[in-house]
């Protein structure tokens, strides 16, 4: 059974905009998949369905055998770690320690245990010593790592990242990619950056205008410039 399965997912925004049209794909346990597509393709909208922040107009999303619905969001959110595009959206408490402990505390962990978990994760990501710092005192790269820490602390089965390397310099990208490679979670990464996608993932799911247009091995498409141009992607300048 796939760990993550999206079946014929359709979604329309309240203003009537068709955001997703019949999207279907599955991700097996341990797989690392890149979600590619131009701006407005529906990538972020799709990601919001994976932990029940949006619910489908039709179709189904299943995480670890659990169909995502209003009644199962709590269980689903314990299994899916979603890292948002802007780390400032994810770091909303006065200190990093509180931000990272936020998830475990909501899952019923006691304060001492949550603090221990949070300190451990921050240490493992090279952010040890910054526990009492506020997010606005961090660099862009540190904020990205901190946002990742807020999710990793809950040991999700699936890690879902929305543009994890945007606004990062080359060193920051390398550091983040290295960290993600070392981890064993199933990974779904929405990105414009094909270099990052190639570094992390073997498989690519490509979206355009709310529909899934390609699902296959990443290496097969990165050298096909015509394919990339057609789908609004850019391998190299």
């Amino acid at each position: 059974m796939p760990l993550l399965e999206v079946a014929d997912l359709t979604y329309r925004y309240p203003d009537g905009t068709h955001a997703l049209s019949g999207v279907s794909f599955a991700v097996e346990r341990g797989e690392k998949v890149a979600l590619l597509g131009p701006t407005g393709a529906g990538k972020s909208t799709l990601l919001l369905h994976l932990n029940g922040l949006l619910l489908p107009a039709s179709g189904c999303v299943t995480i670890d055998g659990i169909a995502v619905s209003g009644g199962t969001v709590r269980e689903v959110r314990q299994r899916v770690g979603l890292v948002f595009q802007d780390p400032d959206d994810q770091l909303f408490l006065p200190s990093l320690l509180e931000d990272v402990a936020f998830g475990p505390l909501n899952e019923g962990c006691d304060p001492e245990g949550a603090e221990l978990l949070a300190r451990g994760v921050l240490q493992s990501l090279g952010l040890g010593g910054n526990e009492m710092r506020a997010a606005h005192h961090l660099s862009g790269g540190e904020k990205r790592l901190a946002a990742l820490a807020t999710v990793l602390v809950s040991h999700p089965l699936v890690l879902v990242l929305d543009e994890p390397t945007s606004n990062l310099d080359a060193r920051g990208k390398r550091r983040l990619v290295r960290l993600l490679r070392e981890r064993g979670e199933t990974l779904l990464v929405a990105t414009h950056d094909l270099a990052v996608a190639r570094a992390l993932c073997e498989r690519a799911v490509i979206m355009a205008d709310g529909a899934l247009v390609h699902d296959g091995q990443l290496e097969h498409i990165v050298t096909d410039q015509e394919f990339l141009d057609h789908h609004g992607l850019w391998a190299e300048l």
Partner: peptide, 24 residues
């Protein structure tokens, strides 16, 4: 707009109406 995104980020990490503190 940011407040809506932040609320989503809070929900994604299990927020259910009350921010529990690490107070000690």
């Amino acid at each position: 707009v940011r407040s809506e995104r932040t609320h989503r980020a809070m929900l994604a990490r299990g927020f259910h109406g009350e921010i529990i503190s690490l107070h000690r």
